[in-house]
Nucleic acid binder design. Structure first.
Lengths: 137, 137
DNA sequence: TTTAAATGCTACACGCAAGTGGTATTTAAT
DNA sequence: ATTAAATACCACTTGCGTGTAGCATTTAAA
């Protein structure tokens, strides 16, 4: 799997936010803490806010908070919003006709692993990322 | 998951070759059969030949054959030769310090799936790709 | 109302994977 | 020797994910 850098950033940020009891997170704070490039993070958060995952507060003392309950946000939702998740569903050899009924030579072993990943991503919520461990970069 | 296009091509080609009893495969034949761009396939096969996986025969009636027994070529060998495989080993959130001892919030569930993939790729050989199914593109 | 601290937007730059074009080289058949 | 069928090489182009720069806008506090 190898998520895109952007998905990686997004999940890193949201996982950090859910593990911190700060009420609002400024871009600068996230940038410094999580090692994400300045303008890139801002653009990403603006996108996530347009998609309804976070809420952005403009102006002085502004920043980002969750827009909805983190236990209703699945990892796959974020990945799909940020880079699209369908590409993770395809045949490892790129055969468009490959399926359970018409498997390529790698399908049987590969599909099971791939499906575990998809299932993991689409059943795990952001709030399940609460952890005792302090993640520092 | 989500190999590079180049790895995908490489595995597609080798898996086709092992499933066919042709003695030598011309670039043109592979290109037409497997839907890989002309010059791109040639360059790829030249690389695989320099790495010792296939043998290229120049001149009239030339083409490509396996340079060594396909049961000594692991999928991970090809992927590593073509795009490098280390990137598939990293933390899903990009934390370089993430490990079993110092896990990120996703590590425990993710690492197991990722390791299954790595294990699959590094224990499966090209000759195991022999299949009854005719793979056509 | 001015200032400072924040996000939003648009356009551009960079790097690398993917793909293309043209020519050179090799080799078997005639 | 000549020709035709094949691979090899080199440089260029394209597309896209990633990253950067500058200015505009919003808003709370003084």
């Amino acid at each position: 799997m190898r998520l895109s850098k952007t998905s990686e950033y997004a999940l890193r940020i949201l996982s950090f936010m859910i593990n911190s009891d700060v009420e609002i997170f400024s871009a600068n704070y996230l940038i410094k803490t999580l090692n994400v490039p300045d303008k890139y993070l801002r653009r990403l958060m603006t996108n996530l806010s347009k998609k309804g995952f976070v809420k952005s507060v403009q102006g002085r003392d502004g920043g980002y908070t969750f827009a909805k309950n983190a236990d209703s946000i699945y990892l796959s939702d974020i990945i799909d919003a940020v880079e699209g998740i369908d590409k993770y569903r395809g045949c490892i050899l790129g055969f468009s006709s490959c399926s359970d009924d018409n498997p390529c030579a790698l399908h049987n072993k590969y599909a099971s692993i791939r499906d575990q990943l998809i299932t993991f991503l689409s059943t795990t919520t952001i709030s399940e990322l609460k952890s005792n461990e302090a993640l520092k970069f």
